[in-house]
Design a protein around this nucleic acid. Structure first.
Lengths: 189, 189, 189, 189
DNA sequence: GATGAATGAGCTTTCATTCAT
DNA sequence: AATGAATGAAAGCTCATTCAT
């Protein structure tokens, strides 16, 4: 009998332990040695559970997105009207802005390291992006898919812009505008 | 002081020559040797004109943004109505998507290296971001500043989303939707 | 002592199962994990039966040589005249060239790891080398031992040269020449 | 002006300084750090002059073979008859046996590390092997190329056999036999 | 001003071996 | 006896930066 270890479970544990490091330093500048040290194993052990650095990152992204969505849904609760649901998303993003910014940074860093086509063809990333968007669309319950996409895109833009321009743009103002626009558009159709 | 003039001029020349390399490979994965080779000087010379890699990148970002706006304005021409002006921006972004993605990447990269507060307080970046937005707002000629910001934010979101999700989102669909929304909103006020 | 018998038997079984791997990849580039996987045991078990990688290799070489001779003798059959017997050897070598090359490689590898004197004094290797040569000489049935050695040496050279120079040297041509030389020499004495 | 260094000349100097290390430890077990230390430069400098370990080895083999042949020709001098020329080669090999054995070991080691097809298709190795053989054939001045090849192959075999079986085989006996065989064969044609 | 040789810390990854279970 | 998780030194190689010329 080998040492009794639930391989899968331990793998996920290691994954979570490495989260903070990636979140704070990005993909490229985190070294395998650092990860190993952070999660208190040897580099050898790290490679026993993950074939390479890229895989650690990818699996982390996947795990993490699953949790994000669950968190949001739990927190957002059931609200009746579209405007309130958009508001819930905007509020959630505002509250967790720092986190979402570090997410974009992390993805960008990975993107740069791996090259465009690698990223766009990466099965895990594709699945994660698709899944996140789907869950959000499902939550929004806007029949016109293009409009639902519009909302998601705009909110992404908001994060992105806040990242580089800071307080110049306000969630309150732009969120309200988004709601008005969408309401007006959906009402007028 | 003729010497200084030459120095400055040459510095900018070197900067421009390195542009393509950064645009296509990002910040992190470009090496100083590569830059030197691309612009046909030695690494020593590179260090004579720029104190380090980061500075090259930073100065490049600044130069480049100045030109972007000019390019856009030249290409977009004078159009009478707001919808057409939004369309012009969306088209410009679509045509130069690759370029705009590398812009985001470049900025993200810098962001990560410097830390959030550094970026938001960095004079160069602040000026550049402010300036780009101002020029765009001026071009749009939308009286309500919040709405103008809305348009700019959405387009940023579009780029960002396309970067990670690829063809899943279409400029045509989302651009048209943006125009309809804004028109409808402005008309209804 | 039935346990010991089983142990020994199992050890040899493992040895044989690892043969193909060593033969095709050499000594250095085969890892213990690979061997373990190939023979369907854990690395732990591997170390239970063999103290280290080198020992596996060494014991394999010994086992293998014993079999080589048997194989050759079985295949070669009884032929009457010296030229035909030389031809049989050359043909056998040509047919099993890949194998003989990996033999040389295996031995060289060991040689390098152990140093010259170790090799020349290594009982196992000495016995194996001696035995191979003896069997070959016995098969050749050439009375003049120097001539028999000559044949064996030449064939060794052929393998060695083919290893580094490939198709440049042909078995057909050089084998025929060897036969003519030896016949002529033996006839003329 | 850069530091004045004759790049080519210095490269060869570094090459020669690394010779002993390879000769005594083989290819695989010599590390880049060891080489760097041996020749008193940093690993960075090593990589400034050679793109990788393989290239160092290959260029060394090439340089070295050139010298070997020159040495032999210088030492062998002009001798009139074929038997004497064969004798010269055998004597040279006997005198430098240790060296030739380490050569075979070195090549074998490299062979194992790179894989068969890599070696047989390697342009440098092909050229070196061809060249060495050509020079030897030219020296032998035996009209029948097959016979000349025969001599070279046999001598290679001699080295190879001596390597593994040591004193069991004598240069004196086998060399004389080779000469007799070839003389007899050439005389009888 | 200009060159490119030189540095060496640091990177990801591998692997024989050990040992708790 | 058997397992495979764990180790960590060491491998080949990269790269921003310095500095003698």
């Amino acid at each position: 009998m080998p040492k009794i270890v639930d391989h899968e479970k331990y793998r996920k544990e290691l994954l979570w332990k490495s989260f903070d490091l990636f979140a704070s330093k990005g993909y490229a500048s985190v070294t395998m040695r650092e990860i190993a040290k952070e999660i208190s194993v040897s580099t050898g052990t790290l490679y026993h559970y993950f074939p390479n650095k890229e895989t650690i990152f990818l699996q982390l992204v996947e795990e993490q997105c699953r949790i994000d969505i669950a968190n949001f849904l739990a927190e957002a609760g059931d609200v009746k009207y579209v405007p309130e649901r958009i508001r819930a998303i905007v509020d959630f993003v505002e509250k967790n802005e720092e986190y979402f910014i570090s997410q974009i940074l992390l993805w960008s860093d990975f993107y740069q390291q791996q090259g465009k086509s690698e990223v766009l063809n990466n099965e895990i990333l594709k699945r994660v992006a698709q899944n996140s968007r789907d869950e959000l669309l499902k939550y929004l319950e806007i029949e016109d898919k293009a409009v639902a996409d519009f909302v998601v895109n705009f909110i992404n833009g908001l994060i992105c812009v806040r990242m580089f321009e800071g307080e110049m743009i306000s969630y309150e103002e732009q969120g309200s505008l988004l709601i008005k626009m969408v309401s007006s558009y959906l009402g007028n159709r």
